[in-house]
Computed example of a mutant assay.
Amino acid sequence: MFAGNVVDQRHGAPITIGYGRYAPNQRLVETLAVDDVMIVIEGRLSVSTGGSTETAGPGEIIHMPKGEHVTIQSHDEGALTAYVTYPHWQEAQA
């Protein structure tokens, strides 16, 4: 998975805005240190939290609250997303 920030703490913003690229059938398991909103631009992603799974395609939004244990899974075509996090994810993971 590749994440590239466009706006973050370097710009004095209280949020991080960027793009993420997922390879085909890639899986990311993480406990979120920030509130995260992803907008799917291309491809599809499934996000599992607890006992539920939400799948999103182009133009759809997934919200993942801080503290949630999530599994993000791309599908055969991979995915391109835009994201907004609060606070900055780099600082929260440090």
Results as ranks from 00 to 15, higher is better:
94 A>I: 00
1 M>H: 05
83 Y>A: 00
76 D>M: 10
24 P>Y: 14
72 I>M: 04
84 V>M: 05
88 H>L: 00
75 H>V: 14
70 V>N: 08
55 T>N: 01
16 T>S: 11
63 H>Q: 12
37 V>I: 11
23 A>L: 15
75 H>N: 05
72 I>A: 05
68 E>P: 01
58 P>Q: 05
79 A>V: 02
51 G>T: 14
38 M>N: 10
89 W>T: 06
35 D>W: 06
93 Q>N: 13
36 D>V: 05
29 V>L: 07
44 R>C: 06
6 V>R: 03
86 Y>K: 03
57 G>V: 05
15 I>R: 03
60 E>A: 07
25 N>D: 14
46 S>F: 10
75 H>C: 04
38 M>I: 13
69 H>W: 14
36 D>P: 05
32 L>T: 07
44 R>M: 12
91 E>G: 00
15 I>K: 06
60 E>H: 11
70 V>I: 15
35 D>C: 04
49 T>P: 05
48 S>F: 06
31 T>Q: 08
18 G>C: 02
4 G>D: 10
17 I>W: 03
37 V>K: 02
45 L>W: 03
76 D>V: 12
3 A>C: 12
37 V>R: 06
54 E>W: 08
9 Q>A: 10
88 H>N: 01
24 P>I: 13
77 E>G: 10
41 I>Y: 10
85 T>Y: 09
84 V>P: 01
31 T>E: 06
62 I>G: 05
90 Q>P: 01
75 H>F: 10
83 Y>M: 02
26 Q>A: 14
66 K>R: 15
82 A>D: 04
13 A>M: 04
22 Y>M: 06
47 V>R: 01
67 G>I: 04
69 H>R: 14
79 A>K: 00
91 E>K: 00
88 H>D: 00
81 T>V: 07
76 D>S: 15
31 T>D: 02
18 G>T: 02
90 Q>T: 08
67 G>S: 02
13 A>G: 08
94 A>S: 07
84 V>H: 02
28 L>C: 04
28 L>E: 09
83 Y>W: 05
92 A>G: 09
38 M>S: 10
22 Y>C: 01
84 V>Y: 01
40 V>I: 13
29 V>M: 11
